[in-house]
């Protein structure tokens, strides 16, 4: 039928950054692995195969392997991506995998996004600041316009994978930058009618050079977001609102 049915196998090379910061003797280096590509093979399958058959010391993170949990973001040929939904078929014969920059390295391709995200959440107070401390659980819930709920979910879809921060030029130079993930969260709570905070409160969180006025609008966050969140417009919107506060 078509050509791909005759193509039996394809050998690919993965150059993977190896480094164990815990081991004083370890130096960062690229190590090459050859591997036979199979039908429908993703980087999740490929990396596990490498670990099981070639190199048991290889470190990387996967959890859901379905593009939902955000664990497996890494730099694939220089760009941040979710490895689990990167098909080998879409990669060139030779590819380079490196850990996400910016985040603390645990080893090889594994970085500590969790710690950073928790810090970001604490700093930006990314939880709903409700009117009442204890909601009345027996009464019918407060109403919300269906469109509002949809708009909130649109921003709530962030999976904290870290791709936006890894892609961000500003974050490269400013270790204290809150990143698009942080702006996305603030934008999410800002449009939530259940949250009692106003723009003055949000200004206290993001109204500086580590926040929305440090962002240089390079938009790599927007372009690299695996969930296609509308980061460009949201950050611009926040900037306008915060500028109004000033």
């Amino acid at each position: 039928m078509n050509a791909e049915n005759f193509q039996t196998s394809r050998c690919i090379t993965l150059n993977i950054l190896r480094y164990n910061p815990q081991d004083k003797a370890s130096e960062p280096r690229l190590q090459s692995y050859a591997l036979e590509a199979a039908d429908g093979m993703t980087l999740f399958i490929a990396l596990n195969e490498l670990r099981e058959h070639q190199d048991p010391t290889l470190q990387f993170d996967f959890v859901c392997r379905a593009g939902i949990c955000g664990s497996c973001a890494m730099m694939v040929n220089g760009r941040p991506r979710l490895a689990c939904r990167t098909l080998i078929a879409d990669l060139p014969d030779e590819s380079t995998l490196t850990p996400l920059p910016f985040f603390a390295l645990i080893g090889d391709l594994s970085v500590n996004t969790g710690k950073w995200m928790r810090g970001m959440s604490e700093r930006l107070q990314t939880w709903l600041h409700a009117k009442e401390a204890e909601p009345d659980l027996e009464r019918i819930e407060e109403r919300m316009a269906p469109e509002t709920a949809e708009a909130i979910y649109e921003l709530d879809r962030c999976i904290e994978c870290g791709c936006c921060v890894a892609a961000c030029g500003t974050a490269q130079m400013r270790p204290d930058f809150v990143g698009a993930v942080g702006f996305g969260k603030i934008a999410r709570f800002r449009i939530d009618p259940r949250d009692t905070r106003d723009d003055d409160d949000y200004f206290e969180l993001i109204g500086d050079d580590a926040g929305v006025f440090g962002c240089m609008s390079l938009l790599a966050c927007h372009d690299m977001c695996p969930k296609a969140l509308p980061l460009k417009t949201q950050i611009a919107f926040l900037r306008r609102k915060m500028a109004l506060v000033a």
């Binding site: 939880w127 659980l137 819930e141 269906p146 509002t148 709920a149 949809e150 909130i152 979910y153 259940r194």
Partner: peptide, 18 residues
């Protein structure tokens, strides 16, 4: 039902009836 309503009060953007 209490769990859903608690989550609603905590911020879960449940889809709503139109």
């Amino acid at each position: 039902p209490k769990a859903v309503r608690e989550l609603a009060a905590w911020g879960t953007p449940w889809s709503r009836v139109k």
